[in-house]
Design a protein around this nucleic acid. Sequence first.
DNA 1: ACTAGGTCCTGGTTGC
DNA 2: TGCAACCAGGACCTAG
Length: 284
Amino acid sequence: MPELPEVETVRIGLEKYLVGDVFKTVQVLREQSVGYPSVTKFTKGLARKEVISVERRGKYLLIHLDSKAGLGVHLRMSGRLIVADKKHKPAEFLRINIKLESGRDLRFEDMRVFGRMWYVPPGETFEDIIPALTLLGPEPLGKDLTAKYLLEAVKGRKQAIKTALLDQTLIAGLGNIYADEVLFQTGIHPLSSAGTMTKPDAEKLVVAIKKTLKQAIELGGSSLKDYTDSQGVNGKYQHSAWVYGRAKQPCRVCGEPIERIKLVGRSAHFCSNCQTKMRGRPTK
DNA sequence: ACTAGGTCCTGGTTGC
DNA sequence: TGCAACCAGGACCTAG
């Protein structure tokens, strides 16, 4: 799914193309795509609301509406949020469609139906409706993510560093692609026990995280399969990935083949020649 | 208190 | 070619 850079790219697009428009009518084609409340209340609540601003927290989009209402969105694995006008290709896997007063549509397309939209009624906060927001770790591009914080946060953790980086309560917004990319850039093996991190490791990781996410945002994110921005355009980061999706291909630094393993149910890509740091006590 | 694993879904790709 | 197994950007829930 969209990770932080992809969600941020969508946010930028919505800021540009959606703010100021008004939700006219809402059509729910898949009930499961509505996270809160009932389909009827969702539909009625959103109708005639104007879009005021679009915020991002981790991988969540927080769309602020008039009357202090809101629309929360998580794209999960295959979700897309597209402001579509007549020249756009037909919707694929359309789950929720919101007709806009401008005549365009705000489409929530989501093949795998893992994504969710939550209506936040006036008087309630996004945190009230989406409790997971309150548990999120610091924004990686903000000043709260420091080496000191990271070192403290992984202290005593025996899990693999890759697993820790995917934990949204540790850092909000990293996913499978960028966790692999960041570990490669710091020379850290993904199976290294998180708690063995040293201060220099933490400093390098923080630098790599911020640098990689910024670069990915500039490239419009990564499109592996489903992801597009709010205009339906693919991202470009995947072409410059160091390790993600490059199993068996030569490492861009040393030429050795990139390895791919399973780690807590996810794929992990790395170069065992370049990524040797912090291996002290790799888990499993 | 942590952590690994199953689960939610669908469709594209791979391999026999 | 046909079909089954495997794979996919995430995160919640449960059980150990």
